[in-house]
């Protein structure tokens, strides 16, 4: 009976531990604050926005896009990180349990702040640049602020953590 209990305990332990032992690949997310405006002679979008320019134009109806700020973070653990594309707008991003499970998609809980005011929170499955996430921000002057999020190659984003945006600290300035 004691041996049977030992066998059952080992099996249960293996069943619970195997997913944890398998480990998870690192994740990196890029975020950019975009100012979308309409211009009779629109300037070309900056290189990091060119692949999104068509999508931004179709969704928001503007024809010129300027990258106001950007920031990326890399995860190798399940802890919260801050994405700070500008000192005005930043996000708390925390990976959820099923990160990386859906063929490269990463489930994240994102809380968006403007200064210290929480604007919204949502959970999302993020993917690569071919399927970005746009967050419609406030109107600015004669344009519109948009936050762009997508998963990037972790190898291009060395791990570093910004513990809190409430302390003055320069972003990585990618």
């Amino acid at each position: 009976m004691a041996r049977l209990s030992l066998l059952a305990f080992c099996l249960l332990w293996l069943a619970g531990a195997c997913p944890a032992l398998a480990g998870e690949p690192p994740t990196a997310i890029w975020s950019g604050l975009v100012l979308a405006t309409n211009n009779a002679h629109p300037a070309e979008a900056p290189p990091k926005l060119r692949k999104f320019a068509g999508k931004l134009r179709n969704i928001f109806g503007y024809n010129q896009f300027e990258l106001v700020g950007e920031n990326s973070q890399r995860w190798e653990d399940p802890y919260e990180r801050w994405l700070i594309p500008s000192k005005e707008f930043y996000m708390s991003v925390k990976p959820r349990a099923e990160r990386g499970e859906h063929g490269g998609r990463h489930r994240m809980k994102i809380v968006l702040f403007q200064n210290r005011r929480q604007l919204a929170e949502f959970e999302t499955h993020l993917n690569g640049a071919e399927s970005p996430l746009f967050i419609r921000g406030p109107l600015y002057d004669r344009g519109q602020l948009v936050i762009v999020l997508h998963v990037v190659d972790p190898a291009e984003n060395p791990p570093h953590a910004i513990l809190t945006p409430f302390l003055p600290r320069a972003s990585n300035g990618d």
């Binding site: 063929g103 489930r107 929480q118 604007l119 499955h125």
Partner: peptide
């Protein structure tokens, strides 16, 4: 498989 989706979105404000 390669689509970002939002599960829920809400605001306390």
């Amino acid at each position: 498989q390669y689509v970002t989706n939002v599960l829920n979105a809400q605001s306390d404000d």
